[in-house]
Design a protein around this nucleic acid. Sequence first.
RNA 1: UGGGGUGUCGCCAAGCGGUAAGGCACGGGAUUUUGAUUCCCGCAUUCGUAGGUUCAAAUCCUGCCACCCCAGCCA
Length: 553
Amino acid sequence: MAEKDISLPEASNFIEQIINEELAAGKLEPVGNKVKVRFPPEPNGYLHIGHLKALSINFGVKEKYRGEINLRMDDTNPAKESYEYVDAIVEALDWLGLKYDRLLFASDYYDRLYEIAEKYIADGNAYVCDLSAEQITATRGTLTEPGTPSPYRNRSVEENLRLFREMKAGKYPDGAKVLRAKIDMASPNINMRDPVIYRIAHVPHYRQGDKWCIYPMYDFAHPVSDAIEGITHSLCSLEFENHRPLYDWMVEKAGFPAPVPRQIEFARLNITNTLMSKRYLKKLVDEGVVRGWDDPRMPTLAGLKNRGVPARALKKFVEGVGVAKAYAVVNVAQLDSCVRDDLNESAERAMAVVDPLRLTITNYSGEEELPFEKNPLRPEDGSRGIKFTGSVYIERDDFALVPPPKYKRLTVGGTVRLKGAYVVRCDEAVTDENGRVTELKCTYFPESKSGSGLPCAVKAKGVVQWVDCKYGVPAEFRQYEQLLKDEQYPDQDYAERLNYDSEHVFSGYAEPYLAAAEENAPFQLMRAGYYKKCTQGGLVLSEIVSLKDNFNK
RNA sequence: UGGGGUGUCGCCAAGCGGUAAGGCACGGGAUUUUGAUUCCCGCAUUCGUAGGUUCAAAUCCUGCCACCCCAGCCA
């Protein structure tokens, strides 16, 4: 094909390759080579991390081709939709910093859609069918056998028009009649066997009230909505591949001028140990298993936000995952890596002790304020002072009576550095009558003071975080076990996947700075080995409940 | 068994006839006041499989195998 003189951006995935080819072939010239896409969620739930891929692809195309993108609520099923969800969707995009050109609603096209349905009828492309839902199913045929035509298939245009208008006027109860596209009952593609395009539902719509008692179906509303908006590329997930001929049929029979929207499918995002079915997530919310759609355990964007995951990390993750047509399950480790990577750059370092063990320095008296770098990677952020009195709490598992092999932290007779302070040697572990360690008696080495710059004779192989006994603030920490332990798509029923451990609350101490910090501010806790063990993106945040109490909704 | 798709390293994923990018994970080493970070080094003679075309194939052709999607008046 001849190269056009318009300069094409470099395609970074197969969708952009297709767009480039179309541009090069001049297919978009009638609209000034303006690429127009849309992100079309149904407002029946919160956006989750799976939607991020569609978001990324659509917004990516829009950016790359300097085109336009509509945020369109695909609200054609009044039984499931509400403003709560449209608000949540709008908020999620806002949080991600994604700017769309306009917010639209499929329900605003109901009049136009109705007119087009009448046109289908007038052109002999649609008919009113009196068969029940069961009968329609029964006559649709099977994967290997063709369907049988409805006895109502050959009604006259006049009769169809009359009946359809009566449906709209509310003359019939739910299920009594439907409008069907007249295509091919013997098509090997089951979706082409006279699909229903309008149904009767005497259900009020959250935006249209009771204006309508017939509602358009996705297979009709979606392509036509795309065409109405002048969408050039309708990007959706793989399961709609079978619907593409229907999509094209709808647009063609509606009589829109070229260029007509083109549907292109890509593989949706799956992540190990993460369930992303809206139906399932809604169940968790409805049954009170979680606190809400934005519970930190949820894979929703709102939940991730509350978990302390930066929007930037999410974007990087989804960009790194790529766009293809092969079924894929990305390992959560890849998400974790992006979160760690971002937080490592941006997060302030903080100390907190979830399971405290008292450590007393026997040769230290008085107190002093030690500077503590907010983020060693960004010296410009400065430091803050942390009070030190020689009596601190350390994490219980940062001490071991009988150290496992290669243990780098404190043992009796061993040394360790108190992060930002001094190296200490443990002289004695005080135990109670049960043999449980209650206190550590230590000696500190004044010359080992952090930041002194002096070559220090005393080396410690490990570093542990601590909170001062006098100045630390009592805190409660809430930590969550992994919500779902199954791999994606295990061979079991959805209902059986409701197993997870509930939240755990620990009483400990936090440095005053942490306690006073902003809600949802991401921190990197300075705990030994924290990165490798933590399942929440490798960093952050057990919520600090008693001090911040930021999840009381 | 009908139709539509997909198969490149443990997980994603480039590649588009000229002799296998990158990321995650993993292993080894160096630096380190986070067992973190950073830093080196290693990690597919092979592209589902069997043939064929070609000087040359993951890329073209043919057969086979595996997996996914479709029988909502959901989207």
